[in-house]
Nucleic acid binder design. Structure first.
Lengths: 135, 135
DNA sequence: ACGTATTTGTACGTATGTATC
DNA sequence: AGATACATACGTACAAATACG
């Protein structure tokens, strides 16, 4: 059983989320690998499944994990793409297709950025892990 | 009791969300006014409070409403601001202050855009209801 | 092709805490 | 202080998606 303080003013689900985040950053839960199941985590932390789901939901909002129904919750391999704006470039945004949602490991509702450069193929980036810069 | 189909393949909380959204658009729930309380809605729709909260959470994600602990859930008066980018302008983004969260009716976690034009006061816009354009 | 086990999703209920009025 | 409203947390049950033998 893990270190949860039910008396703390910080909600249990946030404590759990922080613990899982730390585990991800410590390498215990690896990118592209699933977290333990909700039931497993529930037992490990000694909290209700509801609480685990809130914790995971919070991490999903932050873009750290991504949940797939019937399969599990996976640690996102997230690298921020940095795009330097140059003359003639165009960047547009649109909802991700299902295929993009899968290959880019996007949470539901996350958009993609389409980067168009003259004479090149358009590039599609995850909207929640891209940075646009201008000199 | 309202029109909920528990056999439908669309989840109850989405049906409730749709019904509330329709009520907002039909003017039954007005901008800047609170929705009925969760307990009231629970009785009106004949579902669990949990389900009402999911429905409201969904609407909050869409930016249609905003929930304030201890007070209620309010219909957002949302107008999309359109900003035309011109030479010399700068737009930056940052987390909303508490004051901005209140006056701009922002959900938690929504950022604001700061629009700076030479020789003018900076303008602060809600990040979830602003559109930046370039000719 | 089919059933079974696993995992997440939804929905219900109940209790208690915290914020606001 | 008391009433009202949202927030968190517990529990339970079943449905739906997936994976596998």
């Amino acid at each position: 059983m893990r270190e949860i303080d039910h008396q703390s003013e910080v909600p249990v689900y946030r404590q759990v989320a922080a613990a899982i985040r730390d585990d991800i950053q410590a390498g215990r839960f690896r990118p592209r690998r699933p977290l333990p199941s909700e039931v497993h985590l529930q037992q490990e932390f000694g909290v209700a499944r509801d609480t685990i789901r809130r914790a995971i939901g919070h991490l999903a909002e932050l873009g750290l994990v991504r949940t797939v129904p019937g399969r599990g919750t996976f640690v996102r391999a997230l690298e921020v793409s940095v795009v330097e704006m140059e003359p003639g470039m165009r960047i547009t945004a649109r909802p991700a297709s299902e295929a993009e949602q899968a290959t880019l490991e996007l949470a539901e509702g996350v958009w993609v950025l389409v980067v168009e450069r003259p004479g090149r193929e358009p590039e599609v980036l995850p909207g929640d892990a891209a940075e646009i810069r201008v000199e």
